[in-house]
Design a protein around this nucleic acid. Sequence first.
DNA 1: GGATAATGTAGAACAAGTTTCAGACTTGAT
DNA 2: ATCAAGTCTGAAACTTGTTCTACATTATCC
Lengths: 213, 213
Amino acid sequence: MTAEGKAVTTPASPPLTERQEARRRRILHASAQLASRGGFDAVQMREVAESSSVALGTLYRYFPSKVHLLVATMQDQLQHMHTTLRKRPPAAEEPAARVAETLMRAFRALQREPHLADAMVRALTFADRSVSPEVDTVSRLTTAIILDAMGLDAPPTAEQLSAVRVIEHTWHSALITWLSGRASIAQVKIDIETVCRLIDLTAPPESSGSRRS
Amino acid sequence: MTAEGKAVTTPASPPLTERQEARRRRILHASAQLASRGGFDAVQMREVAESSSVALGTLYRYFPSKVHLLVATMQDQLQHMHTTLRKRPPAAEEPAARVAETLMRAFRALQREPHLADAMVRALTFADRSVSPEVDTVSRLTTAIILDAMGLDAPPTAEQLSAVRVIEHTWHSALITWLSGRASIAQVKIDIETVCRLIDLTAPPESSGSRRS
DNA sequence: GGATAATGTAGAACAAGTTTCAGACTTGAT
DNA sequence: ATCAAGTCTGAAACTTGTTCTACATTATCC
């Protein structure tokens, strides 16, 4: 069960026309493309505008800052990842192992586009208050992915949610250290596995009455 | 025992003259001052230069970028914190509790200067590869503080070091969520306490032969 | 003490994010 | 079809990090 029934996708403000939806999509595509080339710095607003055949002013109407744009790009990518992951759920038995497996899978996907990862993650952690809603959406998506991986058969306890938050913290920060070349891939793997141990630690007692098969 | 016998402080490149040391200090002071006012954005290189009576070019000779400057500022502040913390070591018995207590103390210090915290932490996570050495120094300092708090009587095991790394990840990322208004102080406290449980989890077996008093 | 290299100064110049504005184009309602 | 409101465009302007240049000051070495 995903954390939210609502579509995490749609802030549903004013409904966009078709042409507008298309523009938005072009912009996000250009953003991801440029990011894939050279990371955060390579995503230059003028280039994104030109690349997506949109005036600079329009770009700024759709995404009020570069960080907004990149966080939206991340939302987009995460959505893909989420659906991809749902298709082949992790194989392991234990929740902790399942989460670790899922995150490592995501990590390998990021390794294929390290520059894109750089742009998205840097934007995410650099975001200030004005981007909070968008960053929060990303966070909820990530939480949903992790909870999915845990494969709980009861709603998560408060303790488990704390563990998930800590896992998210570790995930983001470990990515940063990797992206900035201060930690190896192996290191990141160890950190993920280490933090996932918290899941076992916070599992509710096996036979305490509220378990469902 | 601190993680390093070497002075984490001194990269010891070319020894600075007295006037140079003074300049450097003026710059760091101005940086912290401006950061305290308005956070990352308020630290404008021209203002730092003027504020510390140094030409812009000179500022850039001392700190090759704004991020370098702010990371150095953080180094500076951390050093203070470390010596302050050493004076009154945490009271708790258990290593996990001691670390949590220490981090919460640090957190309260940051709360007193939230804008400064903002500037330093944002710079830290935004830093790219060119700042890796400096960021690494900060990381080593943080590790030292945590290890100190654990009060081990034997050198930390590899497992414990992993736990410490995860704690650091959580610490940075939790700070970010707090600074960007997406998590409350209480939330950060819970996250810290949650992650600190990893310390118990990775403690070496009590009476396994390599214990000292 | 003077030559010489390194360091510092002032200020212009450049780059990229962001804002602004006048005019052209769409859209939706009548 | 027409009008008003909202949207998009192109281009210039503005801000702040960063670089560059020509000249002054300081430090070092003989």
